[in-house]
Computed example of a mutant assay.
Amino acid sequence: MTAAAAAQRVLVTGGTKGIGRATALAFARAGARLLVSYGHDGEAAKALAAELEALGADFDTVQADLTTREGAETLARAVTGRFGEGGLDVLVNNLGVDGHTPFDALSDAEWRRVLDHNTTSVYLVTQSLLGALAEGASVVSIGASVALRGRPLGVHYTTSKAALVGFTRALAKELGPRGVRVNLVAPGVTETEPGAGLPPQLAAKLAGLTALGRLGRPEDVAGAVLYLAGASAAYVTGTTIEVDGGI
C-alpha cells in the first residue's frame, strides 16, 4: 500500500478470525483506520483487539448479525459514526461460513444458513453502505476458487460463492460511474489453522495438487485484498482474482 493510501478508512466484516483477521492486521500495519465487525464470538474479538492495540492501530469493533437487514443497518450506522457520510474507502465483505453436506441430505435450513452468510450478507451490507462509500472507494468480497470448479458435498457452498462472481461483475458496472471499484478474491484451501483443520493426509493431498506445493495462508489472501484496495489496482474492477496456489 502506498503512503497516500495509508490513511484509508476500512471496514472488514467477519474480521476476527482466519482471512478476515489477517486482512484487518495487514491494513493496520499499513496505517489504515479500521472498523471490524463480528457476529457472536466475543473472545475472538477481544483477541484481535489486543493484537491491534499492540500495533498501535486506529480501530474499533462492532457486533452485528449481517445476515439480517437490521444487522446491516446497525453496521452502516457504526460506519457513518466512525468515518462520516461518504467516508468509507474500502469495504471488505469477508463474512462467510463453510458447509459439507451431500446434496440428497441438504436441508432447507442448511441451504439458508450458508446462502445467508456467504451471499445475502454481501448484498445487505453493500447495499446498506452505498451512501457511506467515498468517491473512488473499493469493494472487495471474499469468494472461493471452488465456485469456478464445483465441490462435491458442497453444492450450497459452491452456489453461494459462485453467486458472488456475478454480483461483482454486475455491481462494478453500476458503481463504475462513481469511480467505485468492485472485485472478488477467490481463495483456494487456506490454512486458517494448521492443516486448515483437515486430516493430515487430506491436507497433504490438497497441497500436492497445487503448483506451489502448499496450502494457502490467510496472509496470501490478505495481500490480494490490499492490492485491490490500493492505487495499483485503480483500473481493476469487476474481476475475480484466484489465490489458490495454482490448484
Rank of each mutant, 00 (worst) to 15 (best):
G81W: 09
G81S: 09
F83H: 04
F83V: 04
G84K: 03
E85Q: 15
E85N: 07
G86S: 09
G87P: 08
G87T: 05
G87Q: 02
D89A: 10
D89E: 11
V90W: 01
V90S: 03
L91W: 08
L91S: 02
V92I: 15
N93V: 08
N94A: 09
L95E: 14
L95A: 15
L95V: 15
G96C: 09
G96P: 05
G96W: 07
V97N: 05
D98W: 12
D98T: 14
G99I: 04
H100N: 13
T101S: 09
T101E: 15
F103M: 13
F103P: 00
D104L: 13
L106E: 13
L106S: 06
S107A: 06
S107M: 08
D108V: 14
D108P: 03
D108G: 11
D108M: 06
A109I: 08
E110G: 01
E110V: 08
W111M: 12
W111E: 04
W111C: 04
R112H: 14
R112G: 03
V114W: 00
V114R: 00
D116H: 10
D116E: 12
T119N: 02
T119Y: 13
T120I: 14
T120L: 15
T120K: 14
T120Y: 11
S121N: 07
S121H: 07
V122S: 03
Y123D: 00
L124T: 02
V125N: 01
V125R: 00
V125P: 01
T126R: 04
T126M: 08
Q127F: 13
Q127R: 15
S128V: 06
S128K: 05
S128D: 04
L130N: 02
A132W: 02
A132M: 06
L133H: 05
L133G: 00
E135G: 13
G136H: 12
A137V: 12
A137L: 09
S138I: 07
V139F: 10
V139I: 15
V139T: 07
V140R: 01
S141G: 15
S141Q: 14
I142N: 01
A144G: 07
S145V: 14
S145R: 11
V146A: 01
V146E: 00
A147M: 07
L148S: 13
L148I: 11
L148V: 12
R149F: 14
R149K: 14
L153H: 15
L153E: 13
L153D: 15
G154M: 05
G154K: 00
V155H: 07
V155P: 02
H156G: 01
H156P: 02
Y157H: 11
T158P: 00
T158G: 02
S160G: 11
S160K: 01
K161N: 06
A162W: 11
